[in-house]
Nucleic acid binder design. Structure first.
Lengths: 240, 240
DNA sequence: TATAATTTGTTATATAATTCACAATTATAC
DNA sequence: GTATAATTGTGAATTATATAACAAATTATA
């Protein structure tokens, strides 16, 4: 229904808007948001359309109420608790970032196999044995799980999460999880991402070298990085 | 030219193929790879097309030579060194994962502002002062940078990386970096991703609840999770 | 109050990614 | 050797996503 990318961008918009609100700005226009995030104004307006929220022509959007509208859309009416399985280096980093950072959403429990870790508290989160997943998930009424363990156990933990009630999984393991159609999975494959960046870094470098061989010609000004863009056009959709 | 998603999947294919090769299997078919990664066989074939590699009808792909073909495409002919800026929780996790893991690609230097960290070695990586970025990047001939620092310094570090010669950036900060068109950036925004998973977890849950109100009807069998699919169709493109 | 200037909301268009569908190819069975 | 079965490679169709284009709306200004 609503594009995944739009949901992700709404989260970005909210973060920017909160910053802007803190700076005392009360309204913002689509091209301003677009400029900050390096996307097109039309994209911003299109995304905001999904909220059912309306701005004011010639003025823009009211920052405060747009934040509220995004929050109403993105957030649960009640507290949402996530669980994390795997308190290794990455799990620890996630706990440091996500435990108690927002009001509406936080990691509330951690799990590990290592007896050294079970029972201890990491960044405000108690670490339980993985066997306790069903019990704790039930108590927290959690539907969000994070997997930060090695490949070999990932699918097993995933299955256990799902039978326990988890319906959205953020998976950092390199395994592509098999889930029923009523469970959402986001794969964050750091190795693959790293390799992709390395590949395109080389591509970019080659491109640059080839270009520098050519005589200096007019730059293509596709993304506003070019300084030759007329000032009056900077604030507009290129098409208008 | 080549789709970003294809590059990322090629990395996945290689990892699966290496596993499969280690298990002694010498050939593999598109539907097998597809089944492991939960994608469509046509997607696998299309991706492999970009390599210029050819399989054998009725047999599949030779595992060994497909790995070689992917490596030839993805990897640099020489060693590639990446640098990491920000040795916090996340940076440390990345070092643990990526320093010296592959032959062709690894993090070779870390940077931080904290005098406590500068000069120390983390997971085999020396930590330098951020001021040394230009010097070290030059010495390593690195074109890949990882940003794992807070928002406020991200753009400044990004600019410094680029003037030092970095052409591909893996950015974990919540800032959308402004870069010239000859630099590739991959944004991994963990907060936004987390919020997205939370959102779709709720969506899934609602969907499930609505469905359970309806009388039990035929399941739609879109992804092979359904047990009612005929066995002989499991190994085929649905269309054939 | 009328006119000009600007920005939104949204439809239409363009671009990109995925999936289908089937001809071409190869192996195997007879 | 021929027929049969299976799988690849790829043009065409579909789906998803992003961008352009412009009418409608609102404010500022004369």
């Amino acid at each position: 229904m609503i594009p995944e990318n739009t949901v992700e961008r709404l989260s970005l918009y909210r973060r920017v808007l909160q910053q802007i609100w803190a700076e005392g700005k009360e309204t913002i226009m689509s091209h301003e948001l677009a400029q900050i995030l390096h996307i097109k104004p039309a994209q911003v307006r299109r995304d905001i359309m999904y909220l059912g929220y309306s701005g004011i022509p010639n003025i823009g959007y009211k920052v405060k109420s747009l934040i509220e509208s995004i929050s109403q859309f993105l957030d649960s009416t009640s507290q949402q608790s996530a669980i994390l399985v795997g308190v290794g280096h990455l799990g620890m980093a996630l706990l440091a970032n996500f435990s108690g950072r927002w009001r509406q959403l936080a990691i509330r429990a951690a799990f590990d196999r290592d007896p050294e870790k079970i029972g201890r508290v990491f960044h405000g989160c108690v670490c339980y044995s993985v066997e306790d997943i069903p019990k704790v998930v039930g108590e927290l009424k959690s539907i969000i799980g994070i997997i930060a363990i090695p490949a070999d156990q990932a699918q097993k933990i995933c299955d256990l999460m799902i039978t326990s009630g988890i319906r959205g999984i953020l998976n950092f393991s390199p395994v592509r999880l098999k889930v029923p159609e009523y469970v959402y999975v986001e794969h964050v494959d750091l190795s693959a991402t790293f390799e992709k960046v390395a590949f395109f870094a080389r591509t970019m470098k080659k491109l640059e070298e080839e270009k520098s061989k050519l005589p200096p010609i007019l730059e293509n000004c596709s993304d506003g990085y070019n300084q030759n863009v007329k000032e009056e056009n900077l604030r507009k959709d290129v098409s208008v």
